[in-house]
C-alpha cells in the first residue's frame, strides 16, 4: 500500500553554490513513514550528498527541525500521510544562516541559552540541603515551571518568530522561557540577576506577542506564555525599582 509523494528539498553546498537551489525526489511511503525516514531513504538511495541533522527519531533530541511547506517542524514527527495528494517543500529552519543543505548555524541560539544563567543559583543566606537530602518542592511548586522545562532546544520557535527574523539581538522565545523556568523554580535565588536580561530592550519587550512560537512548538512548551508572564514580572520589577528609588 505504498503511495508516492514528491518532496522538493532546498539544497545549498557552500563550496559550490552561491545561493540555494531546489532538488526534487519521489518517495514511496506508508502510513508510518515520517519525513525523517523519507529524507534518510533519499540519502541512502538517491542523493548521498544531502546533509541534515538527526538522531533520536522520537521528538526528544531536537536535532531535525526544518521548514515543511513553510512551517517549522521536527522531521521525525512529521508524517507523509498528512501531505497525501500534495507536494512537500523542505527548507532549512528559517531565520538562521544556512551552513549546508538543511543544516543551519545554531550558534547564536546556543549562545543565548548559555547567556541567561540556566542553572540554579542558590538563595543568599539560605542553607542548602545536605548531600543526602532534597529541597522540599511540592507538586504545586513544581507545576509552576514544569511545562517550561520541557524545551528540547530544537530552535523551531526562533524560526517561527518574526521579531527574531527582524532583530537577531532579541533573546528569543526559548531563552526567555528558560529564564522564566529558573526564576519560578522554588529552589532558585537568581531571579534578580536574570531580570536584567529580561528587562532589556532585547528581552521580553522585544516580543510583540505574535504567538506563532507556541503554535509551532512541538513539545507544547508555550514560550509565548512564558514571555507574557515575563512581561508581568518585568513590569512589577520596574514599579518596585521606582518605589525603591523614591524611598532612597
Amino acid at each position: 500500500m505504498a503511495d508516492k509523494i514528491k518532496i522538493t528539498v532546498q539544497r545549498y553546498r557552500p563550496e559550490q553554490d552561491r545561493e540555494p537551489w531546489d532538488q526534487s525526489f519521489e518517495v514511496e511511503y506508508t502510513r508510518e513513514t515520517s519525513l525523517l525516514e523519507a529524507l534518510n531513504s533519499i540519502k541512502d538511495t538517491q542523493e548521498p550528498t544531502l546533509s541534515f541533522r538527526w538522531s533520536c527519531r522520537m521528538a526528544i533530541c531536537g536535532s531535525c527541525g526544518m521548514m515543511v511547506n513553510g512551517v517549522p517542524k521536527l522531521a521525525c514527527k512529521t508524517f507523509l500521510r498528512d501531505y497525501a495528494g500534495q507536494e512537500m517543500r523542505i527548507e532549512p529552519l528559517a531565520n538562521f544562516p544556512v551552513e549546508r543543505d538543511l543544516v543551519v548555524d545554531l550558534s547564536d541560539f546556543i549562545e543565548k541559552l548559555e547567556r541567561i544563567k540556566p542553572y540554579i543559583i542558590p538563595k543568599k543566606g539560605e542553607s542548602q540541603p545536605g548531600e543526602q537530602r532534597e529541597y522540599i518542592q511540592t507538586p504545586a511548586q513544581l507545576e509552576k515551571y514544569r511545562q517550561f522545562s520541557m524545551c528540547i532546544n530544537c530552535g523551531i520557535c526562533y524560526a517561527a518568530c518574526p521579531q527574531y527574523k527582524l532583530n537577531k539581538e532579541f533573546l528569543g522565545p526559548a531563552a526567555l522561557t528558560l529564564i522564566y523556568r529558573y526564576n519560578e523554580d522554588s529552589r532558585d535565588g537568581g531571579k534578580e540577576e536574570r531580570m536584567k536580561l529580561v528587562n532589556q530592550d532585547t528581552g521580553v519587550w522585544s516580543c510583540s506577542f505574535v504567538g506563532y512560537c507556541s503554535e509551532c512548538c512541538p513539545k507544547g512548551v508555550d514560550p509565548a506564555s512564558a514571555i507574557q508572564l515575563g512581561k508581568v514580572e518585568s513590569a512589577k520589577d520596574y514599579l518596585i525599582s521606582m518605589f525603591k528609588k523614591k524611598g532612597e
Binding site: E134, Y145, R146, R187
Partner: peptide, 17 residues
C-alpha cells in the same frame, strides 16, 4: 540528590519529597 540540587525536576510526593 546532586542533580536535584542542580535543578532536575524530579517528580514529587504531595509533601514535596
Amino acid at each position: 540528590y546532586q542533580l536535584e540540587h542542580w535543578g532536575c525536576p524530579w517528580s514529587r510526593k504531595p509533601d514535596g519529597r
